[in-house]
Design a protein around this nucleic acid. Structure first.
Lengths: 238, 238
DNA sequence: CGATCAAAAAGTGTATACCAATTCAACGAA
DNA sequence: TTCGTTGAATTGGTATACACTTTTTGATCG
């Protein structure tokens, strides 16, 4: 299309390409800050401050905050400034309980639907996760692990071919990594077990056995669920 | 600037009272139109037109549309006008499958947590539903039934004491009544069965028996799930 | 010194105007 | 018919203004 510009106002000439919308930018930036722990529970989220920091106006920031509020990562109350949500031990337990139910169901459906190429992708992801762990050790592998792990679960959720299920898992049951690490067992305890469980889930999917896949996924997630015994120490830090 | 217009343009917007925000007003109005079938799948949702119709500005209408989009009732694509979402048979089946899983879990939890006053509320609701049916007959009772039925399920979801579960059920798994009626068995077939199932759920909750409550709720929802006979309609998305 | 309360400051909710990017619809040509 | 083309319509986003509410500040009082 030979589109000749009639009025190149030479204003901002934004280099960001414009392909991603301003809300998307704001949403991902803020979400990332929360999930990685760059922002902590209770931190203030001021619309103007975020807008200038991200480089957009208040409007898309407000939309992003609303989405994050709906997802439970941000608490918004009328006329009050937003704050990063606080996750108690009970919240973490609830999230893992629901994830166990829903991802178990997803694994069950995925077992009879997943493609061979997706199976290979999962296998490769797990291989890389384990290789990084061997190479980097107990703690250094975490940042890469989190990303691959999310992707591993996301591939299974997508293979379930249930768009609402996929959306719920992706948007309503996230927990900031910092919170997860606070309530979970130490890395040393859970890493090897997680890899074994991933391998078992993969085996069940390869066998196209829905019950096995569901059970393996359930076991995996329930094993991550923080124990109720820790209810004594949930008001540790302020 | 004639900033003289207070608020409450011609219509008093019913009994809401003035304390609700403009987004809430817009959200509930549009949502109601979709769920009751006043707007049908594919209908256009123009921001300006909705804004003037509801009596607010574009800004809150946009927020409302975004929320409805996230809930799956509205389809928004960039620069395109919003349309009321279309629900295929597969969509209806998916929704009831997920509701069965999640409301079954909710019923299980509710069985050991529900208060006596909530049990009485449920009993009363069911009594009214059945009385209205006896009085009004097969079709005339529907509009009142839908409301009470939603409330019945909502009370159980709330009694589960799992806020995220409650929110997911309330916001991500709704189906417009018109769609439900299109895909479901005719009223005559399902009404008596529904009342019997409600009574059974109530009995299980009264007995504080989680497994029974879960099974009864599952049976209830699966019995409403449209039959898979017409399995492959293509639902094209591009 | 600390509690209380009212005014000032800060922040959100909404309206409005405006423009760019894109879609939508009507028209005309091959 | 079926294509492009083109102008109108619509959304995405910025900016500004202001009402309403919360939050902070600061003065006053016990």
């Amino acid at each position: 299309m030979g589109n000749d510009l009639k009025n190149e106002t030479s204003k901002d000439t934004s280099k960001d390409g414009g392909s991603t919308s301003a809300v998307e930018t704001a949403y991902h930036r803020i979400r990332h800050m929360i999930l990685t722990g760059e922002m902590r529970s209770g931190d203030k989220l001021l619309e103007n401050q975020l807008a200038t920091a991200i480089g957009v106006s208040r409007t898309p920031v407000r939309e992003a905050l609303n989405r994050l509020n709906a997802e439970g990562l941000v608490v918004l109350e009328r006329y009050r400034r937003g704050i990063v949500a606080d996750f108690s031990l009970n919240d973490a337990m609830e999230i893992f309980r629901l994830r166990a139910i829903l991802e178990g169901h997803a694994a069950s459906r995925a077992a009879t639907r997943i493609s061979d190429t997706d199976l290979l992708r999962l296998q490769e992801m797990e291989r890389v996760m384990e290789a990084q762990f061997e190479e980097l050790g107990w703690n250094e592998h975490l940042e890469g692990f989190d990303k691959l792990n999310s992707e591993f679960h996301a591939v299974i959720a997508a293979a379930a071919e249930s768009p609402r299920l996929e959306k719920i898992l992706a948007s309503s049951l996230e927990l900031p990594a910092s919170i997860f690490n606070r309530y979970s067992e130490p890395v040393e305890v859970r890493t090897r077990r997680t890899h074994a469980q991933h391998r078992e889930i993969l085996a069940a999917l390869k066998a196209h056995n829905p019950e096995w896949a569901q059970a393996a996924m359930n076991a995996h997630l329930f094993s991550l669920l923080p124990t109720a015994s820790g209810s004594l120490e949930h008001e540790e830090k302020s």
